[in-house]
C-alpha cells in the first residue's frame, strides 16, 4: 500500500521540526499514516522509518504496543463500547452484547461490508455518563440500546459524516507554530541556563 503522500510529507516535516529528537515524532506520524490510509500499512511504516531515521523494525516495535494503531484494515467506523467498572455497573456489557447483535459481529470483528469494526474497550473517561461508547473516538454518553440502533442505521445510510470522520482521523485541527513566534526545540545537548532564570536578580 501507500507511503505518505507529498502533502502528508509536508505535514510530517512540520511535526518533526518541533521535537529535539526525531524519534519523538513517531507516534504522531503513525497517526498521520493511519489518517491517510485508515490503517497503518507496512509501506507507510518503512517510509516513517526513513523520515525519523530509525529501522522499520523499531517503527513496528512502537506501533505494535499501542491499541489505537491497526496493522490490518478495519471498518470505516470503529465502535468502541466501554465495559470497564463504571460502565459495567450500569449495563456496559449488555450494551456490548446488543451491539454484537445489531452489527452481527463479535467484539473484535468487522462487518462484511467493511463499514463497522466493534471493540470491547477499557475506560474512556466518561465514567459519570455510563454506559458510553465512542465511534471513531467521538463520544456517545448514556447511550440506550435504541439510540445505538439509530446511530448504526444513520452511519450505515451515510449520515452524520460531518460529525464523525472516517477511521484514522482523530483531531481535525492541527497545531501550527508560526516561524516568527517559535521558541524552537530545546536541544538536550546544549546546557544553557534560560535567560529569564539568569536575569532573576534584576527584578524588583
Amino acid at each position: 500500500m501507500a507511503r505518505l503522500t507529498p502533502e502528508n510529507v509536508t505535514v510530517a516535516t512540520e511535526i518533526l521540526s518541533r521535537y529535539p529528537r526525531p524519534k519523538s515524532a513517531l507516534i504522531p506520524l503513525l497517526h498521520l499514516a493511519q489518517e491517510q490510509d485508515g490503517w497503518v500499512t507496512d509501506d507507510a511504516m518503512e517510509h516513517l522509518a526513513e523520515l525519523v531515521g530509525v529501522t522499520p523494525a523499531e517503527v513496528v516495535g512502537t506501533c505494535s504496543f499501542y491499541e489505537m494503531f491497526k496493522r490490518e484494515p478495519v471498518g470505516r467506523y470503529l465502535v468502541n463500547v466501554c465495559t470497564n467498572i463504571s460502565c459495567q455497573l450500569l449495563g456496559g456489557e449488555e450494551l456490548l452484547a446488543h451491539a454484537e447483535e445489531v452489527l452481527g459481529v463479535k467484539a473484535g470483528g468487522t462487518t462484511p461490508d467493511g463499514t463497522f469494526t466493534l471493540e470491547d474497550v477499557e475506560c474512556i473517561a466518561a465514567c459519570t455518563e455510563a454506559p458510553c461508547l465512542q465511534v471513531n473516538y467521538r463520544y456517545f454518553h448514556k447511550i440506550t440500546h435504541d439510540e445505538l440502533g439509530t446511530l448504526v442505521d444513520d452511519l450505515r445510510a451515510g449520515r452524520r459524516t460531518e460529525e464523525i470522520p472516517p477511521h484514522g482521523v482523530v483531531a481535525r485541527i492541527r497545531q501550527h507554530i508560526p516561524a516568527d513566534r517559535a521558541a524552537g526545540p530545546a536541544d538536550p545537548a546544549v546546557n544553557v541556563e534560560p535567560p529569564w532564570l539568569a536575569t532573576e536578580e534584576k527584578k524588583p
Binding site: 518541533r18 497545531q175 513566534r181 521558541a183 534560560p194 529569564w196
Partner: peptide, 19 residues
C-alpha cells in the same frame, strides 16, 4: 512561543498525543 508578552521568557508548548 518566543518572548512571551514582550519578556525574556520563551517556551514552545508542543501538543503531543498517545495511541
Amino acid at each position: 512561543g518566543k518572548n512571551i508578552l514582550g519578556s525574556d521568557f520563551s517556551v514552545d508548548i508542543v501538543l503531543h498525543w498517545g495511541a
